[in-house]
């Protein structure tokens, strides 16, 4: 019954042997049990998944866990993937699903725990100036007020710059629906952004944040 704390074994070392082949052959290799395939799929798509999640939820302490969860979900259900060449889009879909669940859960928790709805999400301070930091915080505070599907569509299309068709596929909906969703999201975002001084200045044509390339 008793389980005192104990030392955990070191994490396994990733194979240094690179895998050659497209996504379809990688998926087939994974299904065959090729030990290099798991690492290769991660190496190939980890940045993409991280960026997509980051756009949707902003910087948060749960980002790394969510990232891990997406890969675990994807790889554990890989046998069900009908078209191995569509692995990246399928992975994106899982990331969207994970982010949607996370955002919804956070909103429920806020409601349950009497947390103000204006809660600002975490932002990495790093080298960003206070104003840039506030801009990031304010942006995700505004996104928090949008319906979750509109927020996700907005983040993927406008913050990430994803193609409309890819956004529709990731959100598992039609192109027409995603366009309507984006229209609503843009209007709502602008209305809410104008309530945030740092964002309003930008929308009014100010250059307070400067050019990121200049920082």
């Amino acid at each position: 019954m008793s389980r005192p704390l104990k030392l955990v074994p070191p994490l396994p070392i990733a194979s240094k042997v690179a895998f050659v082949g497209d996504d379809a052959s990688l998926v087939q290799a994974f299904r065959r049990g090729d030990p290099r395939a798991r690492a290769a799929l991660y190496e190939r798509h980890s940045d993409h998944v991280h960026r997509v999640l980051y756009r949707m939820i902003g910087f948060h302490g749960d980002l790394a866990d969510l990232h891990h969860d997406v890969f675990v979900r994807a790889l554990s259900s890989l046998p069900t993937l009908a078209d191995p060449s569509a692995f990246k889009g399928w992975l994106t879909m899982i990331a969207v699903h994970a982010a949607r669940t996370w955002i919804t859960r956070k909103k429920r928790l806020k409601w349950l725990w009497f947390v103000p709805t204006e809660e600002l999400p975490e932002a990495p301070a790093s080298a960003a100036s206070g104003e840039v930091l506030h801009a990031l915080l304010a942006t995700y505070a505004v996104l928090d007020r949008l319906p979750v599907d509109e927020r996700i569509a907005f983040a993927l299309r406008f913050i990430d710059g994803m193609e409309l068709t890819d956004v529709a596929a990731a959100c598992e909906t039609s192109l027409a629906t995603i366009k309507r969703r984006l229209d609503r999201a843009s209007a709502s975002f602008e209305a809410e952004a104008r309530k945030q001084p740092v964002l309003e200045a930008w929308l009014e044509g100010g250059s307070r944040w400067g050019n990121p390339g200049d920082r």
């Binding site: 991660y42 980890s46 990232h67 790093s126 990031l136 930008w202």
Partner: peptide
């Protein structure tokens, strides 16, 4: 504005992915 937010996110060092740790975690 949204594009600028994306650019700022990309510059934020604190949010970068720790690939080595992430891969080790996935392998485990």
């Amino acid at each position: 504005l949204a594009q600028r937010v994306g650019a700022m996110q990309d510059e934020a060092r604190g949010a970068r992915l720790d690939r080595e740790r992430g891969l080790a975690r996935l392998l485990a």
